[in-house]
Computed example of a mutant assay.
Amino acid sequence: MVNEMIIELIILVIIILIVVVFVYLYNSLVKLRNRVKNAWSQIDVQLNRRADLIPNLVETVKGYAKHEKTVFENVTAARAGLMNAKTVQETAEANNVLTETLKSLFAVAENYPDLKASENFRELQGQLEETENKIAYSRQFYNDTVLMYNNKCQMVPSNIIASLFNFQEEEFFEIEETKREVPKVEF
């Protein structure tokens, strides 16, 4: 009788322990998935800030470089591509295109000494640089968070919970290999 009670108690403790571990693993997966979503939204905020600065920058440069129409059209199209991107991969690709077109915009700006001295242009350039730094930080934070989440989705025993509740691995925010060099902007 006493042995049966002890066995029942041990079984009950084991069941409770399994439930507690299950709940802990499930909650940690939810927390990491939400952290990934939050990290992505931080990148999105900075990319939108960057996209909002670009029309002002383009208009400032346009005043000095009226004949550089294709550069302005390319920057505008690249900005629209970034604003319309839906997935992490699309956003990364659109970001790469925009970075390339901004290089050509700054190359045009180099040819206009009065523009380089313009207070508006310098302020916009500073804001864009600050935003680029924030994007880099946000991208790093996002990728670190995705790494933690993906590890949790792949490692035993949390991978069992992840597969049971359809937790999907997330994509990293990556730039193309050819885009990894630092853009050269001279004034």
Score class of each variant (00 low, 15 high):
residue 124 L to F: 10
residue 155 M to E: 14
residue 174 E to H: 03
residue 159 N to S: 01
residue 86 K to L: 12
residue 163 S to E: 12
residue 39 A to H: 07
residue 73 E to Y: 08
residue 155 M to Q: 10
residue 79 R to H: 12
residue 36 V to C: 12
residue 94 A to C: 14
residue 47 L to Y: 01
residue 136 A to W: 06
residue 111 N to R: 08
residue 97 V to S: 05
residue 148 M to I: 11
residue 105 L to S: 12
residue 172 F to I: 03
residue 23 V to N: 04
residue 126 G to C: 08
residue 29 L to C: 10
residue 72 F to H: 11
residue 7 I to R: 07
residue 109 A to F: 05
residue 110 E to D: 13
residue 63 G to L: 11
residue 174 E to Q: 08
residue 81 G to N: 13
residue 131 T to E: 01
residue 46 Q to E: 09
residue 175 I to P: 08
residue 178 T to P: 02
residue 140 Q to W: 01
residue 152 K to L: 02
residue 51 A to E: 09
residue 162 A to R: 10
residue 130 E to N: 13
residue 53 L to K: 05
residue 118 S to R: 08
residue 126 G to K: 04
residue 156 V to R: 04
residue 143 N to E: 08
residue 112 Y to E: 05
residue 135 I to S: 00
residue 170 E to S: 05
residue 140 Q to V: 03
residue 20 V to A: 10
residue 1 M to W: 06
residue 17 L to Y: 02
residue 178 T to M: 04
residue 80 A to F: 01
residue 31 K to R: 10
residue 44 D to S: 10
residue 63 G to Y: 09
residue 8 E to N: 10
residue 165 F to M: 12
residue 90 E to W: 07
residue 65 A to I: 12
residue 57 L to P: 01
residue 20 V to D: 01
residue 24 Y to T: 15
residue 127 Q to L: 09
residue 36 V to G: 13
residue 60 T to D: 03
residue 62 K to Q: 12
residue 186 E to V: 15
residue 113 P to D: 09
residue 156 V to F: 06
residue 63 G to A: 09
residue 166 N to Q: 06
residue 56 N to L: 14
residue 3 N to K: 09
residue 100 E to Y: 04
residue 108 V to E: 10
residue 109 A to T: 11
residue 56 N to Y: 11
residue 55 P to L: 08
residue 129 E to W: 01
residue 62 K to E: 13
residue 87 T to M: 04
residue 163 S to Y: 07
residue 69 K to V: 15
residue 155 M to N: 13
residue 105 L to Y: 10
residue 105 L to A: 05
residue 46 Q to H: 07
residue 89 Q to V: 05
residue 185 V to M: 02
residue 23 V to L: 09
residue 171 E to W: 00
residue 93 E to T: 14
residue 31 K to Q: 08
residue 29 L to W: 02
residue 111 N to D: 10
residue 129 E to T: 15
residue 34 N to R: 05
residue 2 V to D: 12
residue 130 E to I: 09
residue 45 V to N: 02
residue 52 D to L: 09
residue 30 V to M: 04
residue 178 T to Y: 00
residue 126 G to E: 07
residue 17 L to S: 15
residue 158 S to V: 08
residue 161 I to M: 06
residue 120 N to F: 03
residue 135 I to F: 00
residue 167 F to Y: 00
residue 60 T to L: 00
residue 43 I to Y: 00
residue 166 N to R: 02
residue 124 L to Q: 09
residue 85 A to S: 05
residue 152 K to Y: 07
